[in-house]
Nucleic acid binder design. Structure first.
Length: 216
DNA sequence: GACCAGGCACATC
DNA sequence: GATGTGCATGGT
C-alpha cells in the first residue's frame, strides 16, 4: 500500500531533485503561474521569451501596456486575451500592495496573503499556492490536475475531493518541510507529463509496484 | 482530426 | 454546492 511519503521517495529516486520553479525571478514565477493555467509549459516558455525580448517583463511595464499588445506577446500560451487581463490584474495588485515587488510581501502572514492573492481576478487556488510556494517560499502544497489524477489512481485520494481537502491530505501526511513540498509538486508534474496521462502509459512508470491501476 | 496541456470566472440549476 | 461552458494555442 502506497503512502504519501513512499510515493515521494519513489519519485525522487526515479527523477531526482527538480529545482523548481523554472524562472529567473519571483515575478517571473508569478507570471508563469498565470500563463500556465490549463496550458503546456513549452508554450508558456515561448510567451515569456516574447515578454523578455520586448523588454516588458516587469510589473509597471506590463501593467501600463496596451492589453491587445500584451495579448499579442503572450499569444503562444493560449487564452491570450483572458491572460492579458489576468496578468495586468496581478501587476495592479503588486503595484498597489507591494510597491511593485514581491519581495515587499515577505513579512505578511501566509493565510492573509493567500486570501489577498485569491482576491485578484484570474488567480485561483492553484495559481495562488504556486506563487506562495515558488515565489514567496511559503510552506503550502500545490494541488493540480496531475495531483488529483495520480493519487486517485493510487487509491490515496477519494474521487471527487475539492482542492482544500486534497491539499489537507498532503499537508497532514508529510513532514512540514517547505523544500519537500517544492520538490513533491514538481515530481508529480514530471510523472504526469510522461506517464500518468488521461490515457496512462504504465509500461515504464516508476510507480509500477505502488499503483493498483498499473496496466501490466 | 481528436485529444491534451502545471485553471479560472461566470451562469445556471 | 454541484455542474456546464467559454477561453485558444500548439504538440502528439
Amino acid at each position: 500500500m502506497p503512502t504519501f511519503p513512499s510515493v515521494y521517495d519513489t519519485l525522487y529516486q526515479a527523477f531526482g531533485p527538480q529545482n523548481w520553479w523554472p524562472a529567473e525571478t519571483p515575478f517571473e514565477v508569478a507570471v508563469g503561474a498565470v500563463l500556465t493555467q490549463n496550458t503546456a509549459w513549452i508554450n508558456v516558455e515561448r510567451a515569456i521569451a516574447n515578454l523578455k525580448a520586448a523588454d516588458c517583463l516587469g510589473p509597471a511595464t506590463l501593467h501600463a501596456m496596451d492589453p491587445a499588445e500584451l495579448a499579442g506577446l503572450i499569444r503562444p500560451a493560449g487564452y491570450f486575451n483572458i491572460k492579458a487581463q489576468r496578468l495586468q490584474a496581478l501587476c495592479r495588485f503588486l503595484l498597489d500592495e507591494a510597491d511593485g515587488s514581491l519581495a515587499n510581501l515577505t513579512n505578511r502572514d501566509t493565510s492573509a496573503l493567500r486570501a489577498q492573492l485569491l482576491g485578484i481576478k484570474g488567480v485561483g487556488e492553484e495559481t495562488a499556492d504556486s506563487i506562495l510556494l515558488y515565489a514567496l517560499h511559503r510552506r503550502v502544497f500545490v494541488v493540480d490536475a496531475y495531483t488529483r489524477r495520480i493519487f486517485e489512481r493510487l487509491g490515496l485520494l477519494k474521487p471527487g475531493l475539492g482542492y482544500g481537502a486534497i491539499q489537507a491530505a498532503f499537508e497532514g501526511n508529510l513532514p512540514r518541510d517547505r523544500s519537500l513540498f517544492n520538490n513533491y509538486h514538481a515530481l508529480i508534474v514530471a510523472l504526469g507529463k510522461d506517464y500518468c496521462k488521461p490515457k496512462p502509459r504504465c509500461e515504464a512508470c516508476p510507480l509500477q509496484d505502488l499503483c493498483p491501476s498499473a496496466v501490466t
